[in-house]
Write a protein that binds this DNA or RNA. Structure first.
Lengths: 187, 187
DNA sequence: CGAATGGTAGACAGATCGGTCTACCTCTGT
DNA sequence: ACAGAGGTAGACCGATCTGTCTACCATTCG
């Protein structure tokens, strides 16, 4: 593992747990054992490091989630794979995502306003909606696929929020039950 | 308006928009025109001010939301009142809540870990679930009321998340459609 | 061998933070 | 008129922040 990767991974863990503004550069350096000059040779600023961290988490999360869903073709199974995955995440059965602390992008987004990172967080969420639309379009009309994707995204975000702040580790199952109603009735 | 109230209101607006750690005491003082000594005569620390801000927002939000829902008795109307209210909030038609910037409690919660304010944020969410259970218990069995409240809370949080980070101002209507399916089928 | 490269350790600068304290001003009640 | 209360303005303190810079060390390569 390169020092650059080590910095990104450690920064992610600290940002994820304590928030971006609560974590200092020196804390990240102490945790990794990397020298300050090395950090600033890889990243122009703390903000540049944060952007790399966002890209890192975005890639990890999407690869994990889409990997689960790619294994199915039936739309109900595709969607179930997502909520089953969320259930695993909420209950810390997914090593690659680190212990569950809510949605990293929601948390980062909460700390900034009219800032470049807000756009990056939005793009992550949008990429997941786009994937849902793409998969659902194989079995539904364009309009229905779009509507279903919006509804499923809402259920996914609701589940994450309830699992974290609401401390309901079974929120993914609640969301999945609601999603089943959607897929069967085609509301 | 007392200086104390002015401080709380201004601190809320700044914390809500930019995050707690991004806003300094001096910024709040400059905005209100209150002297630093006056602030520290009312609040022991920035953290104490934050706790007062949380209590302020909690009261305002609950009074607004419960006020809407208290006006109805039929469970479907009670729930519809909630999602109609959310729709008004997302589209800035509720002066008392300030321009929509997502859920204040979710944002504050994101900036702290194992901290007193996390508990306060949780209590706000719990108070709303408790209210839902109480209202639904008038027309449903205890178990069904509990299950419905969990589902509705998930839909509410999902709508807020989608409206803010997802930039979907119609998220409340999406959530309401899903809620209608719940109430009619009694799933 | 000896120069260059790329790392470490950490002092340092400049800004900003939360919080304290002094000095002054302006009302109010007697 | 005058004492006291409560406000303002802002200097000030120590801590901490991001980011720069110097000095040194280890490895590698000609």
């Amino acid at each position: 593992m390169t020092k650059r990767d080590d910095l990104i991974k450690t920064a992610f863990e600290l940002f994820y747990q304590h928030g971006v503004h609560s974590v200092g550069i020196n804390q990240i350096l102490a945790e990794t054992g990397v020298a300050k000059k090395t950090l600033y040779s890889h990243f122009a600023s703390k903000e540049a490091l944060l952007e790399a961290v966002i890209a890192y988490r975005d890639e990890r999360f999407r690869l994990w989630l889409f990997g689960l869903m790619d294994a199915h073709t039936d739309p109900e199974e595709v969607v179930q794979a997502m909520f089953d995955g969320l259930d695993d995440w909420f209950n810390d059965r997914v090593d690659v995502l680190m212990p569950f602390q809510g949605c990293f992008f929601v948390k980062v987004n909460a700390e900034f306003l009219q800032h470049r990172v807000n756009e990056l967080c939005f793009e992550h969420k949008q990429a997941i909606v786009d994937y849902l639309v793409r998969r659902l379009s194989q079995h539904y009309a364009a309009e229905a696929a779009q509507r279903l994707a919006s509804q499923l995204a809402l259920l996914k975000e609701g589940a994450i929020a309830q699992a974290y702040l609401g401390k309901d580790r079974q929120a993914a199952q609640v969301a999945w039950r609601l999603a089943q109603g959607l897929l069967s009735t085609g509301r």
